[in-house]
Nucleic acid binder design. Structure first.
Length: 519
RNA sequence: GCGCCUGUAGCUCAGUUGGAUAGAGCAACGGAUUUCUAAUCCGUAGGUCGUAAGUUCAAGUCUUACCAGGCGUACCA
């Protein structure tokens, strides 16, 4: 990580100079790349502490840093109180060669994370919202793994309870040519399932699995709710009973409001049935018992009302059982906002009741896996996504995802055309023009982008980086010909492009998008 | 009513723990190829960052109030 390395280096020097602000400091990216590769704004913070003009502080710091850090590595300049830092070409080449190996670049982590996502009811086909949460969860797993964290992905199957019962009833009603109950499921797929033999719930689960696999999303574990119903739900309830439950109006309540929930929640109804929430408590108890240090749940926004009670339950269980687990810091719930489908600017109404809906499978079939994944990950998880099928498809020529893939294909094409095969030799300290320099710099920032995105569970930031990398390449390609270049330039540029190719491939792999060699 | 998310260019959205002149894509307009894929690149135009106060040397970013949209608010899952 070049930013991290630079920051540590600067921090130790600034500390010795007694110029380290109390709050710490941030390495900025200058708005204008001509100003520098990174920038410090510490002069403004120090101005107050030292009661001096920020401009003169910046000048002093530049002077002192220039003495301490050899000018063969980087150059410091000051402007309007900002301190700008520019790497030398020599230093860029050094970073390129030390960037070759991967995992040991990141801080070691002893975390063991469980990421649960999608967890749709097996009572219908997945829709585009599930697709978004699936892609987000999947890429979070890939990001974490890429920085060396242990991650397990899991789908929780709600294969028991009222909804499942209604669903089975609906299918068997359809089988008997009887009207489907009012509170049942009315989609076209129910009629189709009625034509088939076997348990409709099992059919639905395998259909969902198939769709997700098609989307390039796989789970380490499919966890059945039903499997908790041979004692584990009862066990979880009796654990809570030790301290945090009471009876009221014939029902058993969990006092979740003690743990920050708006109100208390029912575990066992007056009818004697256990609530869905009770199974969920058992499920999360089970997660803790498997020794995960961090739990992550990706919820659809339509379930965000569940967050407070799940946190409350998990905290209560950990207390009763004496497990060291801080919900505030180690139970991360990511809310994925909903997706609205459009076609040529017109909203597509989705209704499970009337059965008028477009399934995730249909979207994938229509616009392709790569485009679906990219559109789902490109926008931040907490913005409502307006997704126009015609735009995603019609644009297929200058769609951002193809733009990125094309960058990769173009590089492969260069090699084919020149009849050369990587790997290429690393040039020694060759001078860089500004386009070559920017190209390498953007490519070098991959690990920083990766680490940041993984740390904050923000896959969209990594997608944005990948796009930026492709963009920089297309610019480079335009400005820096390889075939017609001098022998020396050609050698240098072949290596640059080879480096970029590997960065693109690695980025696309993390996004779960293919990196074609030809388009 | 209360809670969560959102409000930035005509449209869809970025904007790092507050930093330099608020950015990209699409759409519009004008250019670039005797050269490795023009699925590309360059340029022009487009903004009261929902509104109003506040904090700060510095606010799209933080605080408060209000306005608008989405979602939630079950002894359903």
């Amino acid at each position: 990580m070049i930013k991290d390395t630079l920051k540590q280096k600067l921090a130790s020097h600034l500390d010795h100079m007694e110029c380290l602000p109390e709050k710490g400091f941030v390495l900025e990216n200058p708005k204008n790349p001509l100003l520098g590769d990174y920038a410090l704004t510490i002069a403004f913070d120090l101005a107050k502490q030292k009661r001096q003009n920020p401009l003169s502080i910046a000048k002093e710091i530049v002077l002192e840093l220039s003495k301490r850090i050899p000018k063969e590595e980087m150059l410091f300049t000051d402007l309007n109180g900002y301190i700008n830092i520019q790497f030398t070409d020599n230093e860029i080449w050094k970073m390129v060669s030390s960037n070759e190996n991967r995992l040991d670049l990141f801080p070691k982590s002893s975390e063991k994370i469980l990421i649960e996502f999608v967890s749709a009811n097996p009572t219908g086909p997945l829709h585009i919202g599930h697709g978004r949460w699936a892609v987000l969860g999947d890429i979070m797993c890939r990001l974490k793994r890429a920085v060396g964290v242990t991650v397990s992905s899991e789908f929780y199957i709600n294969d028991t309870g009222n909804q499942v019962k209604q669903f089975r009833n609906s299918v068997s009603a359809a089988k008997d040519k009887k009207p489907i109950p009012k509170e049942g499921y009315h989609g076209q797929y129910v009629l189709e399932l009625a034509q088939e033999s076997g348990d409709p719930v099992e059919r639905m689960i395998s259909q969902q699995k198939e769709t997700l696999e098609k989307l390039n999303v796989t789970f380490d574990n499919w966890f059945s709710e039903l499997s908790l119903h041979n004692g584990q739900v009862e066990a979880a309830i009796s654990e809570l009973k030790k301290e945090y439950t009471y009876e009221k109006e014939g029902a058993l309540w969990f006092s979740s409001s003690q743990f920050g929930d708006d109100k208390d929640r029912v575990l066992i109804k007056a009818t004697g049935d256990k609530t869905y929430f009770a199974s969920d408590v058992a499920y999360h108890r089970e997660k803790l018992s498997r020794g995960f240090t961090t739990l992550v749940n990706v919820f659809g926004a339509d379930h965000h009302g569940y967050v407070a009670r799940m946190k409350a339950a998990t905290q209560a269980i950990s207390k009763v059982e004496g497990i060291l687990f801080n919900v505030e810091t180690h139970f991360k719930i990511i809310i994925g906002q909903l997706v609205s489908l459009f076609r040529e600017g017109k909203p597509i109404r989705m209704s499970k009741r009337t059965g008028e809906m477009i399934t995730l499978r249909e979207v994938i079939d229509e616009i392709g896996v790569d485009a679906t994944r990219f559109f789902m990950v490109f926008k931040s998880a907490d913005t409502h996504l307006d997704f126009d099928l015609e735009v995603a498809k019609k644009q297929s020529s200058d769609n951002p995802v193809y733009y990125i893939q094309y960058a990769h294909a173009r590089i492969c094409s260069v090699f084919r055309n020149l009849q050369v095969t990587p790997p290429f030799v690393h040039p020694e300290n060759a001078d860089l023009n500004s386009d070559e320099r920017q190209m390498l710099l953007v490519a070098l920032k991959l690990n920083d982008a990766l680490y940041e995105a993984a740390l904050h569970y923000q896959p969209h930031r990594f997608a944005a980086y990948t796009y930026q990398l492709a963009k920089q390449f297309h610019l480079f390609y335009q400005k820096c010909p390889i075939k017609s270049a001098s022998e020396e330039d050609q050698k240098k540029r072949l290596f640059i492009v080879y480096f970029v190719q590997r960065c693109l491939k690695r980025s696309l792999d993390i996004l779960g998008i293919s990196a074609p060699e030809q388009m």
